[in-house]
């Protein structure tokens, strides 16, 4: 499955880069992330509890960053497994300064998904990924805006889902 897209975050590129390299802050932004530990330089292991409606599952995985070019690019390798299937693949993240105070985040990835998850969820996996990415970026934007004024944003699945809906509604009106 291929995923690609872009999002605008309201912070300068350097701040976005720092956020995307800080496992402690990232772990609070990733929907359902229960832990994200540092294994070595640019290597992490973590646990995500994915829950969309009644479909729930715990996935353990490893994450590796490669080809780092601060503050604009890295490659991401992911290998995660849960009782209901596995997700493996790689992706790239590119940060482009939009202006002094906002950044365009471009992401692209190719994921292999297998196991029971694929049997019944094939139709849903892309939608679920998009939904989680949407929640992640909404949370990241809140985190960056709060950090800019020296605060820590409140994070949590419900708060982030709410932010995500607000962004969704705004984007719908922006189109109209």
């Amino acid at each position: 499955m291929k995923i690609a897209g872009e999002q605008i975050l309201s912070a300068p590129r350097q701040s976005v880069w720092e956020l995307f390299n800080d496992p402690n802050r990232l772990s609070r932004l990733i929907p359902g992330c229960e832990k994200l530990n540092v294994l070595g330089p640019d290597q992490y292991e973590g646990t995500i509890n994915v829950g969309i409606a009644s479909v729930k599952g715990v996935y353990d995985g490893k994450l590796k960053l490669e080809d780092k070019r601060p503050p604009e690019h890295y490659k991401l390798l992911i290998d995660a497994k849960g009782k209901q299937g596995f997700v493996r693949g790689s992706g790239t993240l590119d940060l482009e300064a939009r202006d002094g105070s906002s950044t365009i985040v471009k992401y692209a990835g190719d994921l292999q998904v297998g196991g029971p998850l694929m049997q019944v969820g094939q139709r849903m996996i892309e939608g679920a990924s998009k939904m989680m990415l949407g929640q992640f970026f909404a949370a990241a934007d809140a985190e960056l805006q709060a950090a800019a004024v020296g605060q820590v944003a409140r994070q949590g699945i419900l708060v982030n889902f709410w932010r995500y809906l607000v962004r969704l509604v705004r984007s719908i009106f922006a189109r109209a």
Binding site: P116, L117, V120, G121
Partner: peptide, 13 residues
Amino acid sequence: SLLPMMKLRLAQP
């Protein structure tokens, strides 16, 4: 909808 997901253990109420 629910039972097929439960059989694959995607849902475990």
